[in-house]
């Protein structure tokens, strides 16, 4: 039995097809990343998997329970952490935890123990009696995740868990998620932080315009791309040099990132020679040069049809 099994899922809103025949499964204990640009269908998929919305056609099961017909049983084993920190500002941290436990039918004798344990883990116990409206963004995020774990879920939906957070919150959240993964909790992770998905996920699915473009382990996905990156740093770097280095032989694309240039190539040896020649001719000194393999971000950009411009990623219309 799979933790999640999605079969021929299609969702239409009028004439717009938000999801088009989506199929995938997530094994028990697997950490599964779900990546895609804005509007690709990630949220629609999560809303269907959590039973908030329903598909036009197709089915989704959670631990064998059809989310459409056996909704309550399917949800009982889930923890849901949405993209927005949807906590009740007028309740205290403790009241938020207990309310969440009550919604998930956590037994009275376990509720308080679990709430204490989670608030302590997320470094919020000292503030348990404070109303949440005084909390920082990071504290609200931590509380949201704690609320999602109050029913000890077997399957955790995590939507952008660490987006825009302070270092302390980031570290706590990543530690907790790593711990859950080690405990065998199945994690369905949606994130814009592709490196986060690369580090945490057993497999990732890349969805674009409602269709799954690829599903595989991050390392196997990277192997589908030939491009290699050379990162070069000169003793004097300026924006003008970007045009020069992007014209070097065998350079497919070039970006300026801080004081470094990132050059995309399929032939790193030729590029390194060209860079050295360029440095000599311009009286520049190469401070460092390194060659990297393709990143998951490269795979993502290739599959979603986005393009890099000046260090930013833009959608191609």
């Amino acid at each position: 039995m799979h933790a999640i099994e999605v079969s021929h899922l299609t969702k239409r809103f009028g004439t717009l097809t938000a999801l088009n025949d989506v199929n995938f499964s997530v094994d028990v204990g697997e950490t599964f990343g779900f990546l895609g640009p804005n509007g690709a269908g990630k949220t629609t998929t999560i809303r269907i998997l959590t039973g908030i919305s329903y598909p036009t056609t197709g089915t989704a099961t959670i631990f064998g329970h059809d989310i459409g017909r056996d909704t309550i049983a399917a949800r009982q084993s889930m923890g849901i952490v949405s993209e927005t920190s949807n906590v009740y500002d007028d309740l205290t941290a403790w009241q938020n935890m207990i309310f969440s436990a009550e919604l998930y039918h956590v037994r009275r004798d376990i509720r308080e123990k679990k709430a204490t344990e989670l608030l302590t883990t997320f470094d919020l116990y000292e503030r348990r009696d404070d109303k949440v409206h005084g909390f920082s963004k990071g504290m609200k995020r931590r509380l949201t995740i704690a609320m999602g774990l109050v029913n000890s879920p077997l399957l955790l939906f995590l939507d952008e868990p660490t987006s825009g957070l302070d270092v302390q919150s980031n570290l706590i959240i990543r530690d907790v998620i790593t711990g859950l993964i080690h405990e065998g909790v199945t994690v369905f992770l949606t994130t814009h932080n592709i490196e986060e998905a690369n580090l945490m996920c057993d497999r990732v699915a890349i969805i674009n315009r409602g269709t799954v473009a690829a599903i595989d382990a991050p390392e196997r996905l990277k192997k589908t791309i030939q491009s290699v990156q050379s990162v070069v740093s000169f003793d004097h770097s300026s924006a003008d040099q970007l045009a020069d280095v992007s014209r070097l032989p065998m350079v497919n694309d070039a970006l300026k990132e801080g004081d470094k240039f990132r050059l995309y190539t399929e032939d790193p040896a030729t590029v390194i020679e060209s860079v050295m020649e360029y440095a000599r001719s311009g009286n520049l000194r190469v401070i460092s040069i390194s060659t990297l393999g393709p990143s998951l971000e490269d795979v993502f950009i290739k599959l979603t049809g986005l393009q890099r411009t000046g260090g930013m990623v833009h959608a191609i219309d």
Binding site: T50, G51, I52, T71, I72, A73, R75, Q76, M78, I80, S82, T84, N86, V87, Y88, D89, S100, L103, Y104, H105, M147
Partner: peptide
Amino acid sequence: RVKTFDRLLSAPIS
């Protein structure tokens, strides 16, 4: 507006 209603809609209750 603050998305807490989704919390209720996705809870294991009818």
